[in-house]
């Protein structure tokens, strides 16, 4: 294991995105930072900036409105990155699955590496999920190295695979129906 691989294992910075969760999962995620669990002893920092993060932790089910934000955050994280879906909602949509505006689990929008089930999962389970994500990070670093010809300093043209973001402008260009009755002939 090279120095860079070891460093990536030793300092995973996480960014937490609340994707419409009921806050049950969020409180458990924050509980990991408290003195009882203290994930900072593993080098984990809960950062607020996707550009500094390594691991994206998402709680809650994605809906039509916030999928754009989620994709944006995912794209802003530099490689190597991993995504953890927290809770029943994050994994599959959970109790919100059937709602009219909910798209389902996180994996309907961005690629997910680790699923942490439970409603809500215990802090121990979340920490375990982060440890699993570290393994994923290592794999991704290897892939990056192959692309970057064994060079730890990646060439500048290396770009991560971007997730497509639905464009707002095309949505607004669609004709807006003023009729209240869809059956009514136009």
């Amino acid at each position: 294991m090279g120095l860079f691989d070891k460093a990536a294992q030793k300092s995973p910075w996480i960014i937490h995105f609340d994707c419409n969760s009921c806050n049950g999962c969020d409180i458990e995620i924050l509980a990991c930072l408290t003195p009882l669990y203290d994930v900072e002893r593993f080098g984990v920092i809960n950062v607020g900036n996707p550009k500094h993060a390594d691991i994206l932790i998402v709680s809650g089910a994605v809906n039509q409105k916030n999928q754009r934000v989620l994709k944006n955050i995912y794209n802003e994280i530099p490689e190597p990155k991993a995504v953890i879906a927290i809770g029943a909602c994050g994994c599959t949509g959970g109790i919100f699955r059937e709602c009219y505006n909910v798209m389902g689990g996180i994996d309907t929008v961005i690629p997910v590496d680790v699923y942490v089930p439970g409603c809500s999962p215990k802090p121990e389970a979340i920490i375990d999920g982060v440890v699993k994500a570290l393994g994923k990070l290592e794999e991704k670093r290897k892939k990056m190295k192959e692309k970057g010809e064994e060079n730890p300093f990646l060439p500048e043209e290396f770009t991560s695979e971007l997730v497509e973001i639905p464009s707002l402008t095309s949505e607004t260009k669609e004709p807006v129906s003023v009729s209240h009755n869809p059956e009514e002939p136009k």
Binding site: L3, F4, A7, K10, S11, W13, R141, P152
Partner: peptide, 19 residues
């Protein structure tokens, strides 16, 4: 709390990230 060498790990990791 983290180890004394944690800031060094952070910086080395940042050097290894995508530019």
């Amino acid at each position: 709390g983290p180890g004394v060498f944690q800031p060094f790990w952070d910086v080395i990791k940042l050097f290894g990230k995508e530019r």
